[in-house]
Simulated scan of single mutants.
Amino acid sequence: MAMSLDAAAEVFREAMRDAVKRYSLWYLVEGVLLIAAGFLAIIYPVFSSTAVIVLLGWLLVISGFVQALSLISARHVPHFWLQLISICLAVLIGFLFLRDPAQGLATITLLLIVFFMIEGISKVVFALTIRPFPNWGWVLGSGMVGIVLSLVLWANLPVTSVWLLGFLLGLNLISVGTAIAYLAWQVRAG
């Protein structure tokens, strides 16, 4: 006999609750580390924004070289030239980010908008999934903060400054870290 949608949803919710209980110590550690990273990003907003751009630059360069190495032995794969052009663009953009991180500000702003929005939506969905769980509202609030931060960045898009990116990134990290740590703390205490 097939399971009803409500019964399947309840099984899924119970599995999520069990996972949070089982790994509560790791969630607590993750939350504390996110809070610490968030405070550092707020204290040093220009440094944190520049660090994100430089990190993205290195990731593009390294991934481009790794893809190039794997593509050397695959010259006969379909769309070889298209993949080669993609690799060259990744390395070129990575080097541009590393040469002048301020040039990558608009790109990073768009990426952070997408990141904040997707993370916010995923936190809202997660909160609604564990909803009868005590203190699920903290996770919901954290998701809402992510969504609001993405909208703030979107509204300031043409004139976004480096310090604003670092500051908003810090706020998001603190929000997510607080929600995760508080939820894990309550699970461990209860």
Rank of each mutant, 00 (worst) to 15 (best):
M1F: 03
A2L: 14
M3F: 08
M3H: 11
M3E: 13
S4V: 00
D6S: 10
D6E: 15
D6T: 11
A7H: 14
A9I: 08
E10F: 09
F12S: 12
E14K: 11
E14R: 15
A15Q: 14
M16H: 05
M16K: 06
M16A: 15
D18I: 12
A19C: 09
A19M: 06
K21T: 06
K21L: 11
K21E: 15
R22N: 12
Y23C: 06
Y27L: 15
V29M: 08
E30R: 09
E30H: 09
V32C: 05
V32R: 05
L33V: 10
L34N: 07
A36Q: 12
A37G: 11
F39E: 09
F39A: 11
A41P: 04
A41D: 03
I42E: 10
I42G: 10
I43W: 10
Y44G: 08
V46E: 15
F47A: 10
S49M: 08
S49L: 12
T50I: 07
A51L: 13
A51R: 04
V54G: 06
L55R: 07
L56I: 13
G57C: 11
G64C: 05
F65R: 01
F65T: 03
A68P: 02
L71N: 03
H76I: 07
V77E: 08
P78F: 02
P78D: 06
F80G: 00
F80Q: 00
F80T: 02
F80K: 01
W81H: 06
Q83R: 14
Q83W: 09
Q83T: 12
S86A: 14
S86I: 12
I87R: 05
C88A: 15
L89H: 01
A90F: 10
G94L: 00
F95R: 09
F95V: 15
F95L: 12
L98P: 11
R99L: 12
D100Y: 08
D100L: 13
P101K: 07
P101Q: 08
A102Q: 04
A106C: 02
L110Y: 01
L111F: 09
I113A: 11
V114F: 08
I118R: 02
I118T: 09
E119Q: 11
G120A: 05
I121K: 03
S122W: 07
V124A: 10
F126R: 13
R131Y: 12
P132N: 06
P132L: 04
F133M: 15
P134M: 03
P134V: 10
W138G: 09
V139L: 13
L140V: 04
S142N: 00
S142I: 01
G143T: 00
G143D: 01
M144D: 00
M144I: 13
G146A: 06
I147L: 11
L149A: 05
L149P: 04
S150E: 02
S150G: 14
S150Q: 10
L151W: 02
L151K: 09
L153C: 07
W154L: 08
N156Q: 09
P158Q: 09
T160A: 08
V162H: 03
V162C: 10
W163G: 03
L168K: 06
G170L: 10
G170F: 07
L171T: 09
L171R: 00
N172D: 15
L173K: 08
I174C: 12
I174H: 03
S175P: 03
T178A: 15
T178Y: 14
A179D: 07
A179C: 04
I180H: 11
A181D: 01
Y182K: 04
Q186T: 14
V187I: 13
V187C: 11
R188C: 07
R188H: 01
G190Q: 02
